Simulated assay, not measured.
Amino acid sequence: MIHSTLEFLTAELNAFIKLKVGDTMGNRIYLSSVTNEAGIAIPDQSLGLSLINIEEERTIKEQRSTYINPVGKVEKRNPEIQLNLYVLITANFQNKNLNDSSDDYVEGLKQLGYAIAFFQSKNVFTKENSPGLSGFDPELMKIVVELYSYSFEQLYNFWTVVGAKYLPSVLYKVKTLKIQENAIQESGDPIEKIHLDTLHKS
């Protein structure tokens, strides 16, 4: 579900940015790690969408562990896990090709701005407003994307950890993905009557 969520958001962003730049052929954003052994992993002259952290959403954690299945049996399984994903969108335009305006630093800022504009205009994705969602994962019901601000210290620490110089980027919090494997631990008939013994021994 994590991969299908990020693939869906990448595809939606890609379609939006291609309309903005007037080029329907090439990809404008890639689902990619920020770096690899060779350096920046995001293709040149493009944006990268990268998962940088996963956290459990505990404020609305499901507590129920027993359920009645369609045939009336009681099933016990672990409560679902709800996750938030932290996703970084990075512009890899480093002016490597000085005579190519499409590799200009300013062009990278422009396309990063398109990504911000996209999520400003649409930050909740459901099967009703995004018909393509079901094609990525039938269990995906709703995706909410929120801009996440972090401090200069956190920014510095992140780019130090990934081992690269800073590139223009914006961080989003994607919430909340529900993970339920439906592994049944116990199964049985429901309790329909409770008998109380009111007789006391003298």
Rank of each mutant, 00 (worst) to 15 (best):
V74Q: 02
S102Y: 07
S102G: 03
L88W: 02
L147F: 09
F125M: 00
F93D: 02
V87N: 05
T66V: 02
L98Y: 04
N95Q: 09
D137P: 04
N84R: 09
K76M: 04
E128I: 15
D103Q: 12
Q94R: 15
S130Y: 01
Y67R: 08
V145E: 00
L133E: 01
K127I: 13
S65G: 13
S102I: 03
R77A: 11
V74C: 05
Q82K: 11
L112T: 06
A91L: 04
S101Q: 10
D137V: 01
Y67I: 04
F136G: 04
F93E: 00
F118P: 01
L147T: 07
F136R: 02
K76W: 01
Y67W: 10
S134G: 13
S102W: 03
G113T: 09
E128V: 15
P79D: 11
E80N: 05
P131M: 09
T66I: 04
L112N: 07
E80R: 09
L85I: 04
N78K: 12
K76I: 01
M141D: 15
Q111F: 07
E80V: 06
Y86K: 03
Q111I: 11
I116H: 11
N99Q: 14
G132L: 11
E107K: 07
L85V: 06
E139H: 10
F93G: 00
K110F: 02
G72C: 04
N92A: 06
Y86D: 05
K96I: 12
G113N: 11
N99F: 12
K122D: 03
L140I: 15
E146N: 10
E139K: 11
Q94H: 14
P131H: 10
D104V: 05
V144S: 13
D100A: 09
S101E: 09
L147Y: 09
N84V: 10
Q82D: 08
V106W: 08
L109H: 00
R77I: 14
I81G: 03
I89C: 03
D104H: 01
Y105P: 04
P138W: 04
I68P: 13
N95C: 08
K122F: 06
F118T: 05
T66N: 07
R77H: 15
N69D: 13
L98E: 08
I143D: 08
A117I: 00
E128D: 15
I89A: 06
E139L: 10
K76F: 02
G132Q: 13
T126E: 01
K76A: 00
S65K: 15
S130W: 01
I89L: 09
K127G: 15
K96F: 14
E107G: 01
L88M: 12
M141L: 15
E139G: 08
G113E: 05
F119R: 06
N123I: 05
N99S: 13
P79V: 14
G108T: 02
L85S: 03
V71I: 14
G113S: 14
E139M: 11
I116P: 09
Q120M: 14
I68V: 15
D137F: 06
Y105G: 13
Y86G: 03
P79N: 14
Q111P: 00
Y105W: 13
I143E: 06
P70F: 06
V87R: 01
Q94M: 15
N95P: 02
Y86S: 01
F119E: 02
K142G: 03
Y67V: 01
